[in-house]
Design a binder for these strands. Structure first.
Lengths: 343, 343
DNA sequence: GCCTCGAAGTTATACGTAAAACCTCGGGTG
DNA sequence: CACCCGAGGTTTTACGTATAACTTCGAGGC
């Protein structure tokens, strides 16, 4: 409450700049717009730029949007920002957006919290395009009908009618995991899969099935769990309680599930990796926080966001989006090792 | 590439609604604005509302902002979204904002990544207010000079000239931790502190110092580390390598550091909590992913965002912001226990 | 010497909304 | 009867920008 209400020095407009430079408002707009190099003499342009800088002129975005009908704003639809992967996707997208004077506004689809508001009720009018994760399926239905350019992240390229797709080489990642474990000598696997049924997890499952199926004496069981530590632990405890030869490796759809699997192992008196190897997926911060550290697949999350935003910009300008999947990389750490000698 | 460029059915404007309802554009604005209850007959208002709904009319936000000079958009300045705490703060802020038809745009201050762009270069013109974490100190300097209402999160109430403050009862949390450990019988402590020097960490240090200082035979050493697992581990290894009686408890400024401390203990052959008790702060997802699970202080992160946004809305409307700190709660888990019997 | 032409501007307009200021008309009032 | 008044609108304007359409002027061509 120092001097709460100054007369509030009104932000300078292009007209103020024009007055200061002794030209018309249109000239200011021409100069600062940077187009039509031949329309204004370099001397005048220089003067206008100086005055603009001196006054601290910033174009009014609302007016610009109104005039142009475009807002230079994209919507990023993700399941939840508390998921580190999507926080990183946002970071990447925002970085590329900033380079092109674009803004990114988020719609984390409500996971129970908050009222079931239409995310586009207010936003739809102010967006140039949408980047959406396939994992935010509930929000995707709301997208239907919006006539906006759409870039899909990690979704079935054949499934949706998006203007562009940005995908990770998930299948390759899962193959790397399998090769690693098979190379170590593992033959009896459990696939600890995500309970949610999106493309990215379907790809994991299929790649794993194929890789294991190609080895004659290898076998695999699948259990499903929601994406949290406790569920991963409980599912693993169940899986290990099944009669028959104990599996020697658990392949998890996600680091969070892997952390749960490790906890289950410890509870059952099994050592990781001596008695049980565990692999994760994503390489979250979690992966190096637990003991032992997780062997996992590193995903270039920021790049997903960057490519997504770049693709949207391309679509908006009528250019083709850069094709091709993003490479992923197996990181071998302490949670995997050769299986114990057969009992 | 199905039918990429339809004539793009132009979004209906208030004038379209007016035409459909047989009234003037001004009437539509009056009705939909909801003010001046006496200016339009209920019958007419009803008709206008019906036509608007039928046409799917959404006011053009750019035009509204231009007219009103306000954008109904707030900037949230946080260090990094990949920090779960701030992701949750955002979630809370966005939820409250949505209830009031406000938007939240993020400025995660650059931690090395991305160009050193002025975050307000484009945004400043389009913001009604700012909510800033004290941990985003680099971005705060950029705020200086912006004549915007400012709400500070977890910052020294006396230090900044913000319009409102939203603070957690950090000191109380640290006292709960100390009481817990002292009650278990611990007397020799290490404070594993954050290397960054912000208010929230200063409060932790002081509360801890006071609580330990009040017990005659208690002693404490302090070591500092950046907020990541490896640094926490290394700092702990160093602290435990010091000659003299080994400390029996490590109080960490953050769960991430606590995870590092646990790893250090394991490397040195110490069991947690038998040989060494470890406490965290924040109650991140991490806390229940590691083994043993961390005794830590649960912070209502979403509420920080909610209160922050509510405070900003209050300031914008000239109302006083709700005062008072947000309570925090000690959660006792497996990483703390009584110290081993004296050797 | 007249016409054209390009360079370097200017003037004018539209974007969609909110709201101030203005109309219109029927009924009560002095 | 002249007057005002309020209910229920309408007309008009301003917000700040981008750009289409127009002006002006000196140089050059024939």
């Amino acid at each position: 409450m120092t001097d709460s209400h100054q007369p509030a020095p009104p932000r300078p407009t292009s007209r103020d700049v024009a007055r200061a430079a002794g030209v018309s408002q249109a000239t200011v707009s021409l100069v600062l717009g940077g187009k039509w190099p031949g329309r204004v003499s370099e001397a005048t342009a220089q003067r206008v730029r100086e005055c603009a800088a001196e006054l601290g002129y910033r174009p009014n975005l609302a007016a610009r949007s109104l005039r142009l009908g475009r807002t230079r704003t994209a919507l990023l639809v993700v399941p939840a920002l508390t998921n580190e992967f999507f926080a990183r996707v946002y970071t990447g997208a925002a970085a590329v957006a900033a380079e092109h004077d674009f803004g990114v506004v988020l719609y984390p689809s409500p996971d129970g919290t908050g009222p079931a508001r239409d995310p586009f009720a207010s936003a739809r009018a102010a967006l140039d395009g949408v980047i959406a994760s396939s994992m935010a399926s509930d929000a995707l239905s709301a997208l239907h009908g919006a006539e906006l350019p759409l870039v899909m992240l990690d979704s079935d390229p054949a499934g949706t009618d998006a203007a562009a797709h940005v995908n990770l080489d998930i299948a390759d990642g899962m193959r790397q995991v399998t090769d690693h474990l098979l190379g170590l000598g593992h033959r009896r696997f459990v696939h600890l899969a995500s309970a949610v049924d999106t493309w990215t997890f379907a790809v994991r499952a299929q790649a794993l099935r194929e890789a294991v199926g190609a080895v004659p004496d290898a076998e695999m069981r699948t259990v499903r769990a929601p994406l949290n530590v406790r569920a991963g632990r409980e599912a693993t405890e169940q899986a290990l309680a099944v009669a028959g030869e104990r599996p020697t490796a658990i392949v998890c759809d996600d680091d969070i599930l892997a952390a749960g699997a490790c906890k289950a192992a410890r509870r059952l008196g099994l050592r990781v990796p001596d008695d049980l190897s565990v692999t994760g997926f994503d390489d979250l911060a979690l992966a190096t926080a637990v003991e032992p550290e997780l062997t996992t697949v590193q995903l270039p999350a920021e790049q997903v966001g960057e490519r997504g935003m770049a693709a949207l910009l391309a679509v908006l300008e009528g250019r083709p989006a850069e094709p091709g999947g993003l490479p992923v990389r197996l990181v071998v750490r302490g949670s995997t090792g050769p299986p114990a000698a057969r009992a």
